[in-house]
Amino acid sequence: MLHRQPGSPRGIGNIANSFLLVHVAIATVATLLIKSDPFTFAAKALFPASSILIGMSLAWTTRASTLLQSADLRDALFRNDRRAEDYVYGFQLAILVIMLMVTYVAIMAGGGLSIIVFGQETDSLLSGFWLYLLLSLAMRECWGVVNFTNLLSLLDYRRGEKR
């Protein structure tokens, strides 16, 4: 996750980049505008939705894995500048982010932790902020998995047309 080759996009840099500010902004706006208590919101809406996100991502990752078994497609993708690890670890990082979000949502849906640091109201706001930040990141990663798998499918199809 921390190891990175020059020019390689894999690693924590896929998450900790300039787009993280967009997710922080989304989480801040959601924290301030969503009227529902974040614990109630997690229990009623996000717990079922987050389970669907992880199911979708795993299904699309399986599809990508199947596509990457094609020798022609592997030859087109894997070169010295883009190794197989770049793709595999990218999917793995996406699944990790989604699993962290599901875990956090489950904790929030259960009422959170019985630890008060800054006071009940501030801690609740911070819990909501982290909830919405993880949700935003997980949605981006899920979409990334779907989008990249579709691109692999199109590349595989086009390579088949040329043969």
Results as ranks from 00 to 15, higher is better:
Gly128Ile: 11
Gly112Val: 08
Leu126Val: 14
Glu121Cys: 04
Gly119His: 11
Thr103Val: 13
Met108His: 08
Ile95Glu: 09
Val102Asp: 13
Leu133Pro: 02
Leu93Val: 00
Ser114Gly: 08
Ser124Gly: 12
Gly119Asp: 04
Ile107Leu: 12
Asp123Glu: 06
Leu131Ala: 06
Leu125Met: 12
Gln120Asn: 15
Ser124Tyr: 09
Met101Gly: 04
Leu113Gly: 03
Ile95Ser: 02
Val102Gln: 14
Gly112His: 13
Gly111His: 11
Thr122Gln: 02
Leu96Gln: 01
Ala106Asn: 11
Phe118Gln: 08
Ala94Asp: 01
Gly110Arg: 10
Leu134Arg: 08
Ile95Ala: 00
Glu121Tyr: 03
Leu100Ala: 10
Leu126Arg: 11
Val102Leu: 15
Phe129Met: 02
Leu93Arg: 08
Leu131Cys: 03
Asp123His: 10
Ile116Phe: 04
Asp123Lys: 12
Asp123Pro: 11
Thr103Phe: 13
Phe129Asn: 11
Met108Ser: 00
Ala106His: 15
Val102Trp: 15
Gly111Asp: 02
Thr122Asn: 02
Thr122Gly: 01
Thr103Met: 05
Met99Cys: 09
Ala94Arg: 06
Phe118Lys: 02
Ala106Ser: 12
Val97Gln: 08
Ala94Lys: 00
Tyr104His: 10
Gly119Lys: 11
Ala109Phe: 15
Met101Leu: 09
Phe118Met: 11
Leu100Gln: 05
Gly128Trp: 03
Leu125Pro: 00
Leu93Gln: 07
Leu131Thr: 00
Leu126Ile: 06
